[in-house]
Every structure is written in structure tokens, then in C-alpha cells.
Design a protein around this nucleic acid. Structure first.
Lengths: 379, 379
DNA sequence: CAATATTATTGCGCTTTCGAATTAAAGCAC
DNA sequence: GTGCTTTAATTCGAAAGCGCAATAATATTG
């Protein structure tokens, strides 16, 4: 039993984060991850075990030397809520203290939804997550479309809901649930989800491609989200895009957003307007090809090439409806980039469809919550 | 006289940096800048004064309250060398301990220069800087073209010099001068120069535009250089660029590098090949205009719009020969961006020609040196 | 001119963190 | 088994940094 208690709450939080992420497995690796002396970490671990946040769970034998005493978070120490929404639906997930997704909620929004309705739906979803939860709600993360200021928790603008203007999502949720609340842009939340739950775990530099109704990207650089000076980094859907001859000048998302892609594929195959559920059919179809397909691949290659040359990232994760196009699409785009851009031919370049599903945004919001929480002070 | 000596060398170095940059004027503002307690900073300042690195130089009266005791670096405590080169010349500057540029050296390189010659020229320049210098040489910064790994100090590739391949510039200089050496890419060094000596002082997010023989940008995000996963961020000169009808597909720098711009302007005015020194004439000419000029402005606007949408920065600094085109060019590009991109019309966007001259690269290298140095661990 | 307000700096005891030595828990060689 | 090597964790004295109270230097106000 050691005598001196350490009470730096934020470092305690950081320690839990490392243990939960699996990056730190034992006291020694935790010390390395946090950049603290092993003796100091020992004190912190004592605190966390005494607080019921983490526990020792057996030994990890290496090839030689004393085995590590494995540290694992206590799943029942509390839970985190992640909630995310767009024009169509609110989606929420519950994540236990060990970082496992254990429950979820979806609520469709009527076309007539206004600000009040949406906020109500968000609160309802979060509250519903608490059913049968182990331990208390510790923090809430929220993802919102458009420009979001994570410092103030304000979502600036969302055209789909009347009256949605500088909505202080953080205040609303904090008032209702009385826990810490973190707010972030939708797509950036997905980038965090990738980091906690997906393939981003292994990379410090990656980019999430988010072709949906528009086209944005989220950039992770040196393990941190890149937000830009006005929280508007990654809005490449608005890139000037060469017209197709008939139309004069367009924006990139007019040609490469998800609806635009479905349209281009449908035009090429049937010349008939594309019904909503043809998406699934097309997406499953491994044999889509032809000029339209090639043009789409070339267009995506152009965008990726530009991004790669500016950002020099390690990996692209494709998110959203277009993941339905499968590995093949990513591979072909990759190849097209190399072919088109000699400068990139020699560079490692990898584009992969995200392994996360439709609730990636909510998972990312939950990651925000996990990162926002710090253990209560005191013994 | 205080009792406890503080001996965190890197913090001492950070303190000097703050004082030198002018961001910290007194003990109290230094405490705020470093995030340390005022009492702790007092100890560090005592150390630095005792070491002869900084001094008190009078009082700074505010509107009310006890005046600050102004801290200033001792110019004679030592000096820093910054050296930078390209295919044509080696350029070096000496910066005194207070951060003032006090001497410089230029050495033209023969067309036949190989790796050995260049390294020799670099060493000669740095050595020559030491003439009549006050105090000892404390550190060297070096800027090199192409991909540079600042961690190892290796410059990967430079086509203009035979045999230039993975040259360990840091080792070469460290061996010769026996001081700390920091190496960085040319253009990124310029971005640092902007931060220390130019307009970048007031911004944490900015982009340096470097149209020279190619076209690169250096990105500063949250006060730090963004290098990318393979030290290759910002190589936008290789962006795919729509061909002009005759030629098929090109790279952006084929149309927007400095030589390309001179060519386009010359073609438009005289239809005669442009002699080397027409540059100056053209550059001085405030009345250049016409279709070629407009096309150039539109092309630059396109590039800036793309960059701004990805990076969401605060300010663009135009460097290199094209600064000769003057404020007017920047203003027109700015206007064209707003006109072309509705998404950016509402955003603050500012493009300015750099106030730094031709030795910006060397100054930036000197900044590297200043940042690399830490005080000796005194008694 | 004294009293008060405001801001800067210093003194001092206390807490956190470190560092080096020590103890612990394994595998391996003999 | 008994040492030897290797890696992990703990102990404990020392040091770094903090918080807070005290002191200092200025302007303002009555």
C-alpha cells in the first residue's frame, strides 16, 4: 500500500483512456503511453482500481522477463452515450465503460421536423439508452451536421430544420442529463469512431471520405482531428469542378455525392430515374462497369490525388452509402490514382471501405463522450 | 535570492523562445505563455539571468497596477546560423541571441555542382557567418529542397545535384561545427520564417504559397508545421490540372509555377521568348492585364479555393518571385475566389504577399536553429 | 497625502512526480 | 534445482512545480 495519493483528474482520465483503447495493457506500457515515470503510474493505477474503474485481469507473458499484470476497464463502472442526427433520423448508441457498444436507438424524423422536435428526439433517444444500463451515465457525445464549435458546443447551421441556428446542443443536453457533453461535426465524429472502433486504430494520419448528400472529408493528423481555423476544414464538396460541357461551372459534390453517383450509374444503365431502393441492387452488383463507372472512378481518383498531395496521409476510409460499391471500387480508384499521378505512384496509398456500419457517427459521438469524461475527484 | 534551482533544460529553452519571440514580456506573461505557476517561472528567470541569456530592461507600465519588469534576451549571448540552398545558390544568415538578423552570406553554385561541392559551400557559408560574431555559435538550422526528414536530418532527393540521395545534412554539419543541427524542407522553413520574422506572428493557421520552379505549399496548423505522414504534405504542384485543349493532361505546376506564369504573360504581350531579366520589368509593371492576366488570376483562385476548403486556414502568404506581381495580384485572386466559390464568400479569406525578402528560407532555417537550441545545464 | 484598488513578483510549505535502487516474476543455461 | 538474464512493478528519498499568502509597485480616489 502506497502512501501518496495522486489527484490529477485529467491525467487519471487520460490513463483510463489509454487502458480502454488497448494501447496500454499494463502499468509499464501505460507509463510509456502517458510519458510518466513508472512509479507515478503505479499511484494512478492504485487510484483507479480503488475507484472501481479498472481492474487487474491476469498476466501477459512475454517471451522473457516478468509478465505484465494486465489492466482492464470495468465494464460496469458506468456508460457513455453517443448521439448523432441528420435530416432523416436520430441515432444513438450506448457504450459501456470498457468501450464496448452495448445498445442502440434509432428514431426517424418526420419531414416536418423543426429544431424543438429534433432536440426532443435526441433527448428521448439518450434517455432510452439508459434502460438496463450498468452504472451511471458518465458523459454524452453528440455529432451534428455542418459547422460545429466543439469548444462551445454550438451547432451553427442546418438548412433542413427550420430555426436551426447557433443551437447550443451542449447546453441542452448538459441541462437535461447533468453530465459532461462534447459536441463535434458529424463526419469528424466518424473519424473518431474509426480511431476507437475501426481501422483508424493503427494509423495516426488518415482521412475519412464522406460522400453523402454532399461530400466532406475529416482529417486526422498526428492522431488529432484537424478542424481548421473556423471548424470548416474538409468541406471539399464545394471544390470548383469542371463542367461537363453543357453545364457551366459546378461544385465537386454535384458530380460525386452519393445521389450524384447513383444518378450517373442509373443514367448509364437504364436511362430511367433511379428508385430509392435500386441503391441496394446497384450496390450489391459486383459487375457494374462501363463508361459511367470508369468516369466515376477517374473523378474519385482525381479528388484523392489532390487530397493526398496536400495532406500526405497514410490511409483513406470510405464511409457512407458508397461503401456499398465494395472493395473493388476502392481498389480501382487506388489504381487510377497511381496511373494518373506519377508523383504518387511510388508513395504508399491505401483506400479502404470502412468496416463500421451505419451507426459510425453515433459510435464516434460516444468516443467524444469517452474522451470528455474524467473520473470524479476525491477518494 | 531564491533557494530552489530549476533545471528542466527544455523548459528553460522554451522560456527563452517565448521571451525572444516577444510573446512573453515579463515574468507574469511568461508564466501564462508556458502554462506554469508564476513562482516557478521566477526560478527559471533567475537561472536565465544568471546564465547571461536574458536581462531585465526597465519597466512596462500598464494602465494600472504594478508595472511589469521587462525581460529581454541578451543579443551577445551567442548566435544562430540559418542556411538554405537550391540549385542556384547557398544562402545563409546569422541571427543574434535576441533574434535579430545581423549578417548574411550568399554563394552562387556552378551549374556543375555535385553533392560534395554543395556540402562544402554550405559549410563555408556557415563558417564565414562567424566573422565578428558576438558569443559562440549555438545551433544551426538548414533548409533543403524536396523531402526532408527533420527527425533524422536527412534530405532524401534533389535531382539537380548528381549523387544527392539521402544526404544526412544534420550529421555533416554537426560533425563540422559541433552544435545542435535542425533540418527542414525549404518551404516549411519559410513558413517558420513567417512565424518568427513576418506576418505569421499573428496567426496560428496559415499557408505559405511557394510558386517557384515548381509549386508547393507549407501548412501551419495550430501553430505547428503540418508535415504529413511521409514529410510530403503540400506538394500541390503535382495536382492533376485540366489540359488547355492541345496538351492532354498536365500538372498544376506546368501552368502555375513562376516560369510558367512568366511564359504566359510574355506570350500574351510579345509572342517572343522571355529573357531572364524581363521578369523584373514585368513584375514592376502595375498595368499588366488582359486575358492572360485574368486567366492566371482565375487559375490561382481555383487553387486557393481548393486549399481553403480543405484546410480552412486564416491567411495565405505568397512567397517567391511572384510577389513581384504585387498586392494587386493578391487582391484580385482574393476577389476571384469569393466570386467563384459561394461557400467561401462569407468566410474571412486573406492573401498577402510576404514582407520577407529573398533570404526568407535562410531566416526560417535560423528559426529552426533557435527552436532547436536549449541552454546548457548549468550548475 | 493617505487609503484603496490593481497588477506583478516573491517566499514558503506542500503535493506531485521523478529517479535510482530494490524487489518480483518469469525463462534459460547448466 | 541454482544461478543468470530480462522485464515489470514498487519503494523511498529528492526535486520540481504549485497554491496561496505576503510583499511590492504603480494609479486612482477621496
Amino acid at each position: 500500500m502506497r502512501t501518496k495519493p495522486a489527484i490529477q483528474r485529467d491525467l487519471l482520465g487520460a490513463a483510463v483512456l489509454q487502458v480502454r483503447s488497448g494501447r496500454a495493457v499494463s502499468r509499464s506500457s501505460l507509463a510509456a503511453a502517458l510519458g510518466l515515470a513508472p512509479s507515478t503510474v503505479g499511484l494512478y493505477v492504485d487510484q483507479l482500481i480503488a475507484g472501481g474503474y479498472i481492474d487487474e485481469s491476469g498476466l501477459d507473458r512475454g517471451p522473457i522477463g516478468r509478465p505484465k499484470r494486465r489492466l482492464t476497464p470495468q465494464p460496469g463502472a458506468g456508460w457513455f452515450a453517443g448521439v448523432e442526427f441528420n435530416a432523416e433520423r436520430v441515432q444513438a448508441v450506448r457504450v459501456d465503460f470498457a468501450g464496448q457498444r452495448v445498445a442502440s436507438q434509432v428514431k426517424r424524423l418526420p419531414g416536418t421536423a423543426d429544431t424543438r422536435t429534433v432536440l426532443q428526439a435526441i433527448k428521448t433517444c439518450v434517455a432510452a439508452l439508459g434502460k438496463n444500463a450498468q452504472g451511471p451515465l458518465l458523459a454524452i457525445g453528440a455529432g451534428a451536421p455542418g459547422v460545429v464549435d466543439p469548444r462551445t458546443g454550438v451547432s451553427a447551421e442546418y438548412a433542413f430544420f427550420p430555426g436551426w441556428h447557433d443551437v447550443s446542443l451542449a447546453d441542452v443536453l448538459r441541462e437535461r442529463f447533468e453530465v459532461a457533453v462534447a459536441v463535434e461535426n458529424n463526419l469528424r465524429a466518424i473519424a473518431l469512431a474509426e480511431r476507437w472502433f475501426g481501422g483508424g486504430r493503427d494509423y495516426d494520419d488518415y482521412v475519412v471520405l464522406g460522400p453523402r448528400s454532399g461530400f466532406g472529408v475529416a482529417i486526422v493528423h498526428q492522431g488529432r482531428l484537424m478542424r481548421g481555423a473556423h471548424h470548416a476544414a474538409g468541406e471539399i464538396g464545394r471544390w470548383p469542378w469542371p463542367g461537363d460541357g453543357s453545364a457551366p461551372s459546378r461544385e465537386m459534390q454535384d458530380a460525386l455525392s452519393a445521389p450524384a453517383i447513383w444518378r450517373r450509374l442509373a443514367d448509364a444503365t437504364t436511362r430511367v430515374p433511379l428508385p430509392e431502393d435500386l441503391r441496394a441492387a446497384l450496390a450489391g452488383l459486383a459487375s457494374v462497369s462501363g463508361a459511367a463507372w470508369d468516369a466515376i472512378v477517374a473523378d474519385y481518383a482525381r479528388v484523392i490525388a489532390c487530397l493526398q498531395l496536400v495532406l500526405d496521409t497514410e490511409r483513406f476510409f470510405l464511409h457512407g452509402p458508397l461503401t456499398g460499391l465494395g472493395e473493388r471500387f476502392c481498389t480501382e480508384v487506388e489504381r487510377a490514382v497511381r496511373a494518373k499521378s506519377p508523383a504518387l505512384a511510388a508513395m504508399p496509398l491505401k483506400i479502404v471501405p470502412s468496416a463500421l456500419g451505419d451507426d459510425a457517427g453515433a459510435l464516434g459521438a460516444a468516443s467524444l463522450a469517452m474522451e470528455a469524461w474524467v473520473p470524479a475527484a476525491g477518494e
